[in-house]
Amino acid sequence: MTVELLLILLTAVLINNPVLYYFLGLCPYLGVSNKVDMAFGMGMAVTFVMTVAASMTWAINNLVIFYLSTSSIAIDLGFLRYIIFIFVIAGTVQLVEMFLRKFFPHLYDRFGIFLPLITTNCAILGCCLWIDVKGFNLVAGEQGVAVSWKFAQALLFGIGNGLGFTLAICLMAGIRERLRFSDVPRDFRGVAITLIVAAILAMAFMGFSGIGG
C-alpha cells in the first residue's frame, strides 16, 4: 500500500509531470521562471493551493455529488461539477491570500502578484479533473476503508502534481538565469527560446517513463 502511494507521488512528479507531460500551468511557467527564488515561491504557493483544492474537490465530488446520485434520492448534480471545481479553487486562493496577509505580511508582499494568478493556473483545475481520469474517484458500492484509501490517493496526487510543477519551474528558472548571458538569435529571445528549452527538458523527463511498470 505504501509502495502504491509512493508510486502515485513519483509518477505525478517525474513521469506525468503536469508541465512537461500534460502541458498544464504553462502561463506561470513561462511568466514567472526568470529567477529561481521567485519560481520556488510560486511553486510552493501552487503546491499548497493544489493540495487543498484536490482534497476539497475530491470530497465534494465523491461525498456530495456522487453520494446524492447513488442514494435513494437519486439527484444527479454532475452537470454542476466544473462550476463547483472552479469556485472551490477560487475560494481556496482567496483564503490563502487572507491568511497570508494577516499572519505573514512579509510573505504576502513577495507572493502578492502571484496569488490572483493561481486561480487561472490550469495545473490546479487540471489536477482536480485528472483525479477522475486516474481512477481515484469512488465507484458504486465502495464504502469504509476504500473511501479513505481513495482519498489518500487523491491527496497524494495533488501533492505530487504541486511538487512536479515546482520542480519543473525551478529547473527552468535555473536554466533561464544562465540563458541571459548566451547569444540567442534575435527573433527567438523570450518565449520562443524558453519553449525550445522546455522541449529539451521534456525529452529528459521522458527518460523517467517506466519507473512505475
Partner: peptide, 25 residues
C-alpha cells in the same frame, strides 16, 4: 514520432513563435 509527444509540442511551438517574430520583423 517525437512530434506527437510532449518535446515535439514544445519544440514546434517554439519554432513557430520564432518564425512569426522573424516574419513580422
Amino acid at each position: 514520432t517525437i512530434m506527437k509527444l510532449a518535446p515535439g509540442a514544445f519544440l514546434a511551438f517554439g519554432l513557430v513563435v520564432g518564425a512569426n517574430n522573424f516574419i513580422r520583423r
